[in-house]
Design a binder for these strands. Structure first.
Lengths: 257, 257
DNA sequence: ACTGTATTTATCCAACAGGTTAATTTGTCT
DNA sequence: AGACAAATTAACCTGTTGGATAAATACAGT
């Protein structure tokens, strides 16, 4: 019955402060209006929930609880479950596109530009692991929702053009030997990081080693950069992947998936 | 009420043939026992269902219907939903491991061995698209089920060793310039194909072009082989990816995801 | 034919999940 | 202060879903 801060302490401001000890219980603790904040909390909670359980596995009640809100609020502020899902997806794309646009490769020499590009996206996905899951979820539904989103369709990644430019410069300068379809290269770079992170759970079980600790992640980044640069420059930058990989051999487990 | 062939025509043999028109309706059409067949149909149906909708989205009733069975049969023959899921997963791993073992690279010179390896796995995933979805599903649940499966954990892929051997030979023969950690290379090769196929739905929307038609798939295979071989040999095998990629430029859309 | 067990079917159910209704509270404008 | 819209809450409704029960049927051994 008591509205006040019913679910969470979503103290948006100077909310509760015992106020007047006499006034009816109803008025001791108050909730405040905060539509924008509420909407944001809902979207954040929904992102976590959808990322953690997928579209079908996500629970509307859990989202509400996590947002310190009421189920009715979701419908009031966003719409039904699928609307909510699409909104989350669109926000995720917007976020990554915005960060992508902040990257400037023009000053760097081609190999460094590639290094920077790979390092940047690697970092982004490490910082935003939910995005991986959201994309997988959307692919499971065969992009059904994305197709309906004119918003996302209009948000082109600047990376394809960046890659085209860098490769072009690299070929001209002699740094790179081969011309590559920038879309293919874009996909390949995305693949190298995406698969590793997205499938780290199963891969870790199969290989019997943790692929997400600091060292493993560093090694992976090193390997990806070396692989791509070796392909582009035609000069394998020393032994790539783990140093002494072949001489020393690889740990115990060596399954695969 | 009429048991006979109630859901499907799962004519396991010479099932219905109008038999004796006089005998009671109950006996006109008969179902036959076929435990092994039933189990297989259930697993196949379950594989499709789990691949299409994920673990949470899968519906036990749909699996039963698709298997031409009854819901009770699932519990009788396999167990509850999660048991069923794990069984499907284990069967999927068994299948790919079996095919993997059939691949013999020892006779081929190192570059051809790599080509063959990539082509083989590419083909496997094209022929078995459900496996992609199953793996994604399992990663969504952070390999919770795999961890419980001693079966899968003991099924090591022969590919890591094959790659180690091939790279080793390649370095010795001078075909390859760099030594690579075979596990990293294994993951990278897996990544190049997995991401492309698994994310083709969203990528197709973003790029505004179909990534799964014949030509696109051929180009992708070509690109993957070229990328890996260029990195290993240090000799970019001509322009890789799409011929004239840079000169001609790339189609209309060029977004990204 | 007779019987016990394996296999299969039809039916039911309690929990759950998404969505809706209606009441209550808050802030703002007058 | 009063009124009206925006925001929030609690309670309810209904179809679904995984799972369980119990009855029916088939088959093998005798």
């Amino acid at each position: 019955m008591v509205h006040p801060t019913s679910q969470h302490n979503r103290a948006t401001g100077l909310a509760k402060q015992k106020t007047n000890e006499k006034s009816k219980a109803k008025r001791v603790l108050r909730w405040q209006r905060d539509p924008e904040g509420m909407r944001l909390r809902i979207l954040e909670a929904a992102k976590q929930e959808f990322a953690a359980h997928g579209l079908a596995g996500a629970r509307v009640d859990r989202i509400a609880a996590k947002a310190g809100a009421n189920k009715r609020m979701l419908y009031y502020h966003v719409g039904n479950k699928e609307d909510l899902y699409l909104t989350v997806l669109e926000a995720a794309y917007e976020k990554i596109r915005a960060e992508e646009r902040s990257l400037d490769l023009e000053q760097l020499d081609p190999p460094d530009a590639i290094r920077t590009l790979i390092g940047f996206t690697w970092g982004y996905f490490l910082r935003n692991p939910e995005f991986l899951a959201l994309l997988n979820s959307e692919n499971l539904s065969r992009a059904k929702h994305l197709k309906r989103s004119t918003k996302v369709k209009s948000m082109h990644s600047p990376f394809v053009e960046m890659i085209r430019a860098v490769v072009s410069r690299g070929v001209a300068s002699g740094d790179f030997q081969a011309a590559v379809d920038p879309v293919q290269l874009y996909i390949s770079i995305a693949a190298l990081r995406f698969f590793y992170l997205s499938n780290s759970a199963t891969l870790s079980v199969i290989f019997g080693r943790d692929l997400l600790n600091r060292q493993a992640k560093d090694e992976r980044l090193e390997h990806m950069v070396a692989l791509v640069l070796a392909a582009l420059t035609g000069r394998s930058p020393a032994v790539f992947g783990r140093e002494q990989a072949l001489r020393v051999g690889v740990p115990a487990h060596t399954g695969a998936a």
